[in-house]
Each structure stands twice: as structure tokens, then as C-alpha cells.
Design a protein around this nucleic acid. Structure first.
Lengths: 227, 227
DNA sequence: ACAGCCATGTAAGTCGTTACATGATTGC
DNA sequence: GCAATCATGTAACGACTTACATGGCTGT
């Protein structure tokens, strides 16, 4: 139920509509979680029923109603409880690592594409997270300003410090991913070079000495890339 | 559909039963993904229907049937396609970071508990992943031996190298998490010290000069920890 | 005989993705 | 008038969790 707590946490800063919240999730700034509006609207309704949030209605045209949600005291308690209750940490489930475990099934060109895409993705995110950390530190985002202006949300210096620490942590993670991908590219180079040497030896007629190395078998010809 | 590909990738090493596969996922070794048997058995059936795997049946008692699955050529193609096709990297969705963003809602003792639990969790995993990388490098796990003995699975040196690189990457990630949590603990100390100083000043009667600092308001008394 | 592991499943429910669907307001 | 953005929903489907349920084999 993390979506619920993410929404409650955001609403401690200021009242927002479902649309606002979806924006924060989707295209913005507060990037540690993600959810589409199709998940957000029903969840807000459920939370309203549960008394965790309250909606202020305003009409738009004949039929449209805009619902601006604020967190209730019950909601505040719930989010406090959630932050303070650690609970066991979830299992890692990382598609990219899963894929990289089996890169030997692809050819060198594909492996390079894989690591290159990884590198580009995470160097983009490193920048985003790092910049976001700096913006929060400088109190430049609307959300952190709203949060500091709001009452009953704990020590404001702590609010800033924890967020900065979180986003810097994410940036450091991304930096590590970039390093890992760079090393991955170097690894592909080494593997390809080693394989080329073997082929040379084989062409030269001399089998590698002593090695009980299993047959290297290409189950089908490579489709692209020089070798 | 990563479960499907994880299963297919494991079956490239050797034929296994659902139980074997669940073991690999749950309590073992190949830890980059996780799935319970309740997810594995139906998925194997679906893959069998789709012709990606084949089951060899053996009877156990009157009614029991053991199904040992092997990957088919179609399955091999599917897993190769999956490894070679990068596809966009998924959004990060990290409950722990989400929580740490809002630690100001908890008290200092809870924040310390949070970072301590994080630290312990990831230092355990760092060891596991690092050890696993070393075991694969030394060809000590049954699975990597089976894989090297099997045919048509690409360059065996690459198979080892990519796995080692993956698990070392995971270990490095875990190491970073440990550092992050350690810094987090230091941060809590600093925040608490700063807050104690403020209280001292306030008790001494002198308001801090010039600062347009928002009111620090404790919405309810802290429940634990010295201050 | 009993414990522990081997072995396979079903069911209910939640969470999340993707696509479908509608309409209002604002600025050019 | 049109495009972009504001604003809110539903539906179908797939992924994942947790609990329930059953029975065989092996060693002590």
C-alpha cells in the first residue's frame, strides 16, 4: 500500500487535486515513486471513504466537479505510523540485472547496446536527482516551500535534510549504475578480444594447450556488428 | 513478463522441476529475482502450452506426477530475443526511499531505527552477493557447472563473466546502501544536536537573530528516546 | 510414527499497466 | 476555432501476495 502513503505524504505539504498529484508523480520533481492517474483517482476516493482525506468540491461547467483533497488528522496519524514502522525490506526485483546475468545469450553488439542504454538512462537520472536535491536544498521547489509554510509537519530543517539525503542517495545510486555499465562495456571488449584470439589460434591450426574448455558453439550466426 | 524469462533462462542450464525452480528463486543462490511457487507452477503450465518448455513426467505414488521441464528451441529463441531486446528501463519504485523522504514525520529514535535496519539489511546482502560472485567465478555452484556442461548457450567464459559482473554490481549497490544509511545516522545525530541547541537558546531567553525560520512545532509529544 | 523435505496445485484479493472515454478552461 | 492543458473517471488484463490444501518419499 505504498501509493496510499505516498499520496498522504504529498498532501501533508498542501491540499491538491488528483490531477496535481498525478503531475507530481508523472512528470515532475518528486521522483521516487510512480503512479498513473488511473490508480490515483480511485485511491483518493477510497481514502476519502476511510476518512484519511477530505475533498473540497468546486464546480467546473455544468457537470464537472473538481475535488481538492486535504489530509485529515487521521491521515496524518496514518502516514506518521507508516514512516515510523520500518517493516521488513522488500525483495529486490530488478529486470535489468536479471537480463545482464544472461547476456552471453546475446551477441557482443547487443551486449554493448544493453550497457550503453543503461549508461544513458542512469546518467540522465543522476542529473535529475542531483539537481532536484540541490533545488530542495535551496528551497526552490514549490512543494518544499508549501511544506515549510504548512504547520504540524515536524522540524522543517529535518524535512529538507531528509529529502536532500534521499535524493543525493538516489543520485549516488545512479552514478554507480553508470560506472557499472562502463565497466560492462569494457568487459564486452575484453570478451570479444579473447574470442577473436581463440579464433586466430584455431585458424592457425594450434589448439589451446591443456584447457578442458567446453566447446564454444555458436547456435546461430550473429546477425549484426563487426567481429 | 520477467518471471517467464527468468524461468526460461534458468532452464537453459538444465531441466528442472517447478520445485527446483522455486528453490532457486526462494532460498538460494540466483538472487536477482523472486517468485513463490504459486506463481511458478501456473507459469510453467502456460509456457508448456505455448511450446516454450516441455515436461517429462514421472509418477510418484498413485496420483502424484512429477514434471521435469526442459526448454525447447522456441523457448531458447524467446529468451535470446528477450536478452537482446533492451526495451525502455522501468521506473524506479523504491519504498524505502519513499519513506526516507518523509522521516521528519517520525522522531529521532524512529529515524535511527530506520537507518539501522537499512544498514543491517544491505550489509547482509552485500555479503551474499559478493560471496555468490566469488562462487560463480570459482565455478563452485551446481548451476553454473550445469550451464557450462550444457550446449548451445553461448561462450562459457562470457556466461561466467556476465554473471560475476552482475553480482559484483549488486554487491556494490548494497555497499552504497550501507554508506547511505551510515550517513543517515550521522544526519540524525546532527539534526538532534541542532534541535537541542535551539531548545537551549530558547530556554536561555534569546531568540535566534534575523532568521525568518518557520515555527518549529511538534504536533504531538515524542513517544520515545532521550532528547 | 514422526519430522522434514519433495512436489504440486488452487483461490481470493491487491496492485499496477494500458487503453478507452469524456468534457472544461485558457491562451493564441 | 484550435491546441494545450486541466480534470476525472472506467475497464480489462496481467503480476504478485498470502493463505489454503494435498500428498509422497526418506531417514531416524
Amino acid at each position: 500500500m505504498s501509493l496510499r502513503h505516498a499520496l498522504l505524504a504529498l498532501l501533508t505539504a498542501k491540499p491538491m487535486t488528483g490531477y496535481d498529484l498525478a503531475k507530481v508523480f508523472e512528470r515532475s520533481v518528486d521522483y521516487v515513486w510512480h503512479a498513473p492517474h488511473s490508480q490515483i483517482y480511485p485511491e483518493l476516493r477510497r481514502m476519502e471513504k476511510g476518512g484519511l482525506v477530505e475533498a473540497e468540491l468546486s464546480l467546473r461547467g455544468e457537470r464537472g466537479t473538481k475535488r481538492t483533497y486535504s489530509i485529515t488528522e487521521l491521515g496524518r496519524e496514518e502516514v506518521r505510523r507508516w514512516v515510523a514502522a520500518p517493516g521488513p525490506i522488500e525483495h529486490s526485483r530488478d529486470v535489468e540485472r536479471l537480463r545482464s546475468t544472461y547476456l552471453e545469450l546475446a551477441d557482443y553488439a547487443d551486449a554493448r547496446r544493453y550497457f550503453t542504454a543503461h549508461l544513458e538512462h542512469f546518467s540522465l537520472w543522476e542529473q535529475r536527482w542531483d539537481q532536484h536535491a540541490r533545488q530542495i536544498e535551496a528551497l526552490e521547489t514549490p512543494l518544499i516551500r508549501a511544506r515549510l509554510a504548512s504547520e504540524g509537519t515536524g522540524d522543517p530543517r529535518a524535512a529538507v535534510a531528509y529529502k536532500v539525503h534521499t535524493y543525493r542517495g538516489l543520485a549516488a545510486q545512479a552514478r554507480l549504475e553508470v560506472e557499472w555499465a562502463t565497466e560492462g562495456l569494457a568487459l564486452v571488449d575484453r570478451l570479444e578480444a579473447a574470442s577473436a584470439v581463440d579464433d586466430g589460434e584455431l585458424l592457425g591450426g594450434a589448439a589451446p594447450p591443456g584447457a578442458a574448455r567446453p566447446t564454444r558453439k555458436r547456435s546461430r550466426p550473429r546477425t549484426g556488428g563487426p567481429r
